[in-house]
């Protein structure tokens, strides 16, 4: 049932997915949500995933990126700034 996995745990899992794919695939909020639902089934809800993304961003562990669509990425210095 939704709520069995804590939001903190979900955020950690999501961070793992983002880090694993860094430099290869841009992860969208929807991709992370789908990955978590695939992994934990009905133990997580879309709302839990939303809250986990919020936690990831607010803690500064991830940032929003933009490549046409929005993505969730590891913090880095913007290439164009160099």
């Amino acid at each position: 049932m939704a709520g069995e996995i804590s939001v903190e745990q979900l955020a950690d899992e999501m961070y793992g997915v983002v880090a694993e794919n860094a430099g290869m695939k841009k992860m969208k909020a929807g991709d992370l949500t789908k990955a978590m639902i695939a992994k934990f089934g009905d133990q997580v809800s879309k709302q839990d995933c939303k809250s986990a993304i919020k936690l990831l961003i607010d803690s500064g562990r991830c940032v929003y990126g933009y490549y046409g669509g929005s993505s969730i990425e590891l913090p880095r210095t913007e290439g164009a700034a160099n």
Binding site: D58, S70, E78, A80
Partner: peptide, 16 residues
């Protein structure tokens, strides 16, 4: 143009 500048917690509102 760059897409990764912004303020903490927000993903929009700033265009690099």
């Amino acid at each position: 143009h760059g897409g990764l500048v912004g303020v903490l917690g927000y993903g929009g509102g700033v265009i690099g």
